[in-house]
């Protein structure tokens, strides 16, 4: 036990050393982050639902400088190979991509590279947990998400955008799916990491939550973290997700209001 802990701590120390060498101070002594937020504050949200008429549902979401577009088609009959048909539920098909202009350097991003395949898979798992797929047997729901500008927390922004798009499409869900990335710096969890923070050698964790029931749809983490801190980090992530869900709820209600006023006349 002692040994394991020791190695982990050393790992964490080395990370910190690395970060110090890079000269970034992610959390100042006064408790400010690089962009002026406090540890638990989220970035500014801006969202619109129903941005495309052709698709069944669509949404555009800005979370700070990360901007994503999500489009939903379906439910419709299963296209492509028949073998994928599920007789008791709908199949969810997700595709994640990044625009060539989404980062500081323009880069061609072919479909089907490892990173985006993995991300697509994660999205799929998340929404399979949230969408009431049993209502649409033998059908398929397509969710396409594109990152237009990337500034950290791509996964969580995609999930949030896709949630709005699914709602726009009128597909029943158990709850909003809200996601947030949190990082751990100087014994403090930071909510909603931006790109500079993600790159700064922080142990980050992404969490997708169904806030009302407190169920976790997806939890992903591939950094080192002392096990003592994990609970605190997850706790912080859940709080952040609940914050996100309030914002999403507001967006949806406002959209409904806008949509219903003209039709009533």
């Amino acid at each position: 036990m002692g040994n394991v802990v020791q190695r982990q701590t050393r790992g964490a120390l080395r990370f910190q050393l690395f970060r110090k060498m890079a000269g970034l101070e992610l959390l100042s002594d006064q408790g400010y982050r690089l962009d002026g937020r406090k540890a638990t504050e989220l970035r500014k949200f801006q969202a619109r639902m129903g941005v495309f008429a052709q698709a069944d549902g669509s949404a555009y979401l800005e979370q700070g400088n990360t901007k994503a577009l999500a489009v939903v088609y379906g439910p419709h009959e299963v296209r492509g190979s028949r073998s994928r048909i599920r007789h008791d539920q709908a199949v969810i098909n997700c595709q994640y991509s990044m625009a060539t202009f989404s980062t500081a350097e323009r880069k061609r991003r072919p479909h089907g590279d490892r990173k985006s395949t993995e991300m697509s898979l994660h999205l799929k798992q998340t929404f399979e947990a949230a969408v009431m797929t049993q209502l649409y047997p033998r059908s398929q729901i397509d969710i396409y998400v594109k990152i237009l500008q990337s500034d950290g927390g791509n996964y969580s922004v995609c999930v949030n955008a896709a949630t709005l798009a699914v709602i726009d499409a009128g597909i029943p869900m158990r709850d909003y799916v809200c996601a947030c990335t949190v990082g751990f710096v100087d014994e403090t969890p930071l909510a909603d990491l931006c790109y500079a923070e993600e790159g700064g050698g922080v142990s980050s964790l992404a969490l997708a939550l169904l806030p009302r029931g407190g169920q976790i749809a997806l939890l992903q983490m591939d950094a080192r973290l002392h096990q003592d801190h994990l609970e605190a980090l997850i706790e912080a992530a859940m709080t952040a997700c609940k914050g996100v869900s309030k914002v999403l709820d507001q967006v949806v209600r406002q959209h409904l209001q806008e949509a219903s006023v003209p039709s009533a006349e």
Partner: peptide, 15 residues
């Protein structure tokens, strides 16, 4: 030579 855009949040209450 990359242009980095960073957010900058301002607040009214700074101790």
């Amino acid at each position: 030579k990359v242009r980095v855009v960073r957010e900058h949040y301002l607040r009214e209450r700074v101790p």
